[in-house]
Design a protein around this nucleic acid. Structure first.
Lengths: 247, 247
DNA sequence: CCGGCGAATTGATCTGAGTCAAATCTTGCC
DNA sequence: GGCAAGATTTGACTCAGATCAATTCGCCGG
């Protein structure tokens, strides 16, 4: 049993359905807004789903039928063109919520979600979940908070894409990953694995593979970071990295 | 009296406080979620405020004290660096809401809001407004919808900034403005004024003034758009423009 | 331990957009 | 109407990052 509450509820924990009680993101995800009693409603709707790296969850242009929580792994949220250009507009980590526009059901989902590492999701049908949002204001409030955070992040990324140099973009990206890793306790702040390969990094920060590679080499030469293999980063000096990340 | 309801309520309109009853964005803004009775609560909190072009509403780094609705004019939401680089991460049109992260009060507002044209705001103190969010779920729901829309827009802009050419960026920008104008009925779809000068356009789409100017000239030469003066655009052929805007 | 193959690095060259520098066009103000 | 002052356009040149082309690395299966 790997269950441990970082946030305790009235003590009727025994009432929690199995899947929720042992869920790695029980409290850090949207579900943290619900008590042990309340979460039964959500559990009844939900079912788990696994995706292998490279598999997609929704395709551009599809009608969205489901929402989901990421319980394990990393996914990318992306938009592509016919001529091969691609932009990753967000990364999804454990406890992140997947759900598009709520009220305007007519809208098509314009983005593709693709697993980057082995991915575990907890899926809810759209209708049922929206009913729960009405029933539990705390759930809706938490969703609003999350959405505002993502908006904030998207705007920071606009600054990166619109005004930062290649060097600053790579440094900023590494900083962001380091932070994500700290928050999720996946690994230490100093040493951690990049969840993306060079091609995906390039598509996230608006550069090419080659430029990303050259800038990482540069950062290594200047002693801002160190690496073990192509994926494992050692960022000893967070302040130095922040300076390189620009404004 | 310029009041006209596009969305009718129980018919106790006489009960509406003067400022709300004659408000140009009474129904299209967040306030549209409230009935004539309910809006009294909000009216008691609110006060109008005017800003001249160039004046700022919140400074980067300030603690946010107030939320607001834009009732008239256009403002830009921007982030700047010490070395003079600047990125406009959003434009605010009439009926748009100004309000940062809700729960995490400790956060500093990282953006500056500056009036681009004569701006009229309807301001609410933060605390009072948050109390109303709790009291009226419809208000919170509308705020969530709005925030999801903005997130959507921010991600589209990430695609523009990360992967589009100069030509595509300018065409996309013009399309977006045309759409805004149509939605707000400010002017026809075919002919309309740009709310921003070349410098601000450049800071919004991640280019320089000169490149923006050259691309507008290019679009004019190719007959995609026509212009009267530097600000007034004539976009006869929306489809053609959309092709130029890329994916 | 040894290929083999996709991923990453490195090098050489090219180019779209940036920079610097004039014109020229607006627009408000007297 | 005429004249600044600022905004926009245009031109010449530069450069950061893209593109094209080899290597080299790192990891997995045998």
């Amino acid at each position: 049993m790997n269950y441990e509450a970082d946030q305790t509820f009235p003590a009727d924990l025994g009432a929690e359905p199995e899947r929720c009680a042992t869920c790695a993101v029980r409290n850090s995800s949207l579900c943290g807004a619900l008590s042990s009693d309340e979460i039964n409603d959500l559990n009844k709707l939900s079912r788990p789903k696994s995706l292998k790296p490279g598999q997609t969850f929704v395709f551009e242009g599809d009608q969205i039928k489901d929402f989901a929580n990421v319980t394990q792994g990393v996914a990318k949220l992306m938009r592509g063109s016919e001529d091969g250009r691609e932009q990753i507009v967000g990364l999804l980590f454990p406890s992140d919520f997947i759900g598009g526009p709520m009220s305007d059901n007519s809208q098509d989902e314009p983005y593709t979600i693709e697993a980057v590492s082995p991915l575990e999701l907890c899926i809810f049908p759209r209708d049922g979940f929206e009913a729960l949002l009405e029933k539990y204001p705390a759930l809706e409030r938490k969703l609003l908070d999350r959405t505002l955070n993502e908006l904030q992040l998207a705007r920071e990324w606009m600054v990166l894409l619109g005004r930062k140099t290649a060097q600053e973009r790579v440094a900023t990206f590494i900083m962001h990953v380091a932070e994500k890793m700290r928050n999720h306790g996946c690994q230490g702040t100093i040493g951690f694995d990049l969840p993306l390969g060079r091609a995906d990094i390039a598509d996230h920060i608006g550069l090419t593979i080659e430029t990303v590679s050259r800038q990482i080499t540069q950062l290594r030469k200047e002693g801002v970071i160190d690496m073990q293999g192509a994926r494992h980063i050692l960022a000893y000096d967070a302040d130095r990295l922040r300076e390189y990340a620009g404004f």
